[in-house]
């Protein structure tokens, strides 16, 4: 296919065009022995003894498909790897299915595929199965990706919201809201030279934390709904409350600026390469040191603590820089822009 070629309905029909796409693009980019067999299902090696399998699935519909710091392909593999990693699992294998809109430029598809391959390499995982469907123009928005991810929780590793205790500390691995702000800015032509998505696979960062002997109570990747939503869910499952310190929150100046322009709150914007940890108070310092020593955790910060339950269902409270208090509730519907 030449550079100005586009995806046709036939590329999803299972015939000759599909074969060309698989052999000409997907196999070379995602090269691994399981995928190369092109059989109906990938038959995988046995899991390490004592390890428990962790399985996740996710769908990706980001608009625009290409954004500063990533693309739909890179995002989809990172997102899947990260869901496994923060569950305490070592990611192993992924499936990657694409729903493409007829007319998608070939070079965009190539970039998405290269993005997925890069993320898989960085995370040390294999894309062992895939599928491609093409729908008529207007029936999808460029491209959607759907994944499944398989990982293994090593024997003896326990991690989950049920282990969270009052007095625990909340730590985030870097600045929040970068991905959401970048995508919103790209949609509205507000890009800046320094604004880019934090999209990255977190596997190596989580590995480093366990290798240092830190055992987080729980870990999460604050994607859709951002930090505020993630912590609301943690507090609800733990039946406790969380208090955040606004002055300690790492928020980039350019992210704050985009949020002010568009009427968004960075605490509700997606991160795609950040982990939030809850740890015992005595482990906070070690955790911060490990994170800051890693390239993906240089902006790590202790941002708050777990407290006893509060009345009236308020789960997360922000102690504002001005000295006030403000509940960080779940979003209602979509986060709507302000009009003036």
């Amino acid at each position: 296919m030449s550079a100005d070629e586009r995806v046709l309905l036939g590329h999803g029909a299972g015939g000759r065009l599909t074969g060309e796409l698989v052999r000409g693009l997907f196999l070379p980019a995602l090269a691994n022995p399981h995928l190369a067999t092109l059989s109906d299902a990938a038959v995988l090696p046995e899991l390490p003894a004592g390890g428990r399998p962790a399985l996740t699935t996710d769908a990706f519909v980001v608009d625009p498909l290409l954004f500063p710091g990533g693309d739909l392909g890179y995002l989809s593999v990172c997102g899947t790897v990260n869901d496994l990693a923060v569950a305490g699992a070592v990611p192993r294998s992924l499936t990657w299915a694409l729903i493409l809109e007829e007319g998608l430029p070939r070079d965009v598809l190539e970039r998405l595929t290269a993005g997925a391959a890069k993320a898989a390499r960085q995370a040390g995982v294999q894309v062992v199965a895939g599928d491609t469907k093409v729908v008529p123009r207007g029936k999808a928005d460029g491209a959607f990706a759907v994944t499944a991810g398989l990982g293994v929780v090593p024997s003896g590793r326990e991690c989950g919201d049920e282990f969270v205790r009052a007095g625990d500390r909340v730590v985030v691995s870097g600045s929040v809201g970068d991905h959401g702000a970048t995508v919103m800015a790209a949609r509205h032509g507000l890009g800046s030279a320094t604004l880019r998505s934090d999209c990255a696979p977190l596997r190596a960062l989580v590995d480093a934390v366990y290798e240092a002997g830190v055992a987080p109570r729980c870990m999460h990747d604050p994607t859709r709904g951002g930090l505020a939503t993630t912590l609301n869910e943690v507090a609800a499952r733990a039946e406790l409350a969380i208090e955040l310190d606004e002055a300690a929150l790492p928020i980039r100046a350019e992210v704050a600026a985009v949020c002010e322009l568009l009427g968004l709150d960075p605490l509700y914007l997606a991160c795609e390469g950040r982990a939030v940890f809850v740890v015992a108070p005595e482990e906070e310092e070690t955790l911060l040191a490990v994170l800051r020593d890693h390239e993906l955790g240089q902006g790590a910060a202790g941002i708050g603590r777990v407290t006893q339950r509060r009345e009236r269902g308020v789960r997360v409270v922000l102690r504002t820089a001005a000295g006030g208090l403000r509940p960080l509730d779940l979003l209602s519907g979509m986060d709507l822009p302000r009009i003036c």
Binding site: L318, T320, A321, G323, G324, L325, R326, R338, C340
Partner: peptide, 16 residues
């Protein structure tokens, strides 16, 4: 102004 209403709530100023 609605933006003031929102800003006062967001900063938790009523407490002060």
């Amino acid at each position: 102004c609605g933006t003031h209403t929102h800003a006062i709530a967001a900063a938790g100023l009523r407490r002060l």
